[in-house]
C-alpha cells in the first residue's frame, strides 16, 4: 500500500514536470496507486487488466464491485484519463500548464475521496447515493415493518 502522503506529494510534483506528457502519465499512475490502496484494503489483488486502454479504469471498476457507492469516483477517473489524452494529443497547446494543473486537481480529488472512503468503517457510510440499492441482504437488521 502506498502512503497517501507519498501519493499527494507525487501528484504535486507531477504538475512541475517540464515534460507535460510525462507529468500526465505520472498522474494516471498515481491514480492507479490510489485505487490499488482501496482494492488492497478490501483484501483483493489489484487487477493488472486494462479497460478502454487504461488500468486506472479497470481498477475503478474492480473497486466498485460489491460497493456501488465507489462509482462516485467513476467520472473522476474518466476525467483524469481525458486530461491525460488531451495533453498527449496536443502537447504544444498554449493551455498545457493549465491542463496539467487541472489534471492534478482531478487526481487530488480522487485521492481525497478514496481517503475518505477508507475511513468509512470508523465513521459510517461515506456516500449517500447508492449502496443500499444494491444490497440484496443488508448487513443491518431490517426492522419489522408491519
Amino acid at each position: 500500500m502506498t502512503p497517501f502522503e507519498t501519493i499527494t506529494a507525487g501528484i504535486a510534483a507531477a504538475v512541475g514536470d517540464s515534460d507535460a506528457r510525462r507529468g500526465a502519465d505520472a498522474l494516471v499512475t498515481w491514480g492507479e496507486r490510489i485505487l490499488e490502496n482501496w482494492v488492497e484494503a478490501r483484501d483483493e489483488t489489484p487487477t493488472a487488466n486494462e479497460r478502454e486502454g487504461f488500468r486506472l479504469l479497470a481498477l475503478q471498476r474492480q473497486g466498485a464491485k460489491g460497493d456501488p457507492s465507489f462509482n462516485a469516483c467513476r467520472e473522476t477517473c474518466r476525467e483524469l484519463v481525458y486530461h491525460r489524452n488531451l495533453i498527449h494529443d496536443e502537447p504544444e497547446n498554449v493551455e498545457m500548464p493549465k491542463r496539467l494543473k487541472m489534471a492534478a486537481m482531478v487526481a487530488r480529488h480522487l485521492c481525497l475521496f478514496v481517503q475518505g472512503k477508507m475511513e468509512e468503517d470508523a465513521l459510517g457510510e461515506f456516500c449517500c447515493s447508492s449502496r443500499p440499492l444494491h444490497n440484496e441482504k443488508p448487513t443491518e437488521e431490517v426492522p419489522n415493518h408491519a
Binding site: T76, E79, M105, V106, R108, G116, E119
Partner: peptide, 25 residues
C-alpha cells in the same frame, strides 16, 4: 472537470475536515 465529483456532503457532520478538503478542491 469536477462537475459530478463528490462534495463530501454526507460526511459534513461526522468528518468535516474531509468535506472541507473535498469542497476546497
Amino acid at each position: 472537470p469536477l462537475k459530478t465529483a463528490c462534495c463530501g456532503g454526507a460526511h459534513t457532520l461526522s468528518d468535516s475536515d474531509t468535506s472541507t478538503k473535498l469542497v476546497l478542491n
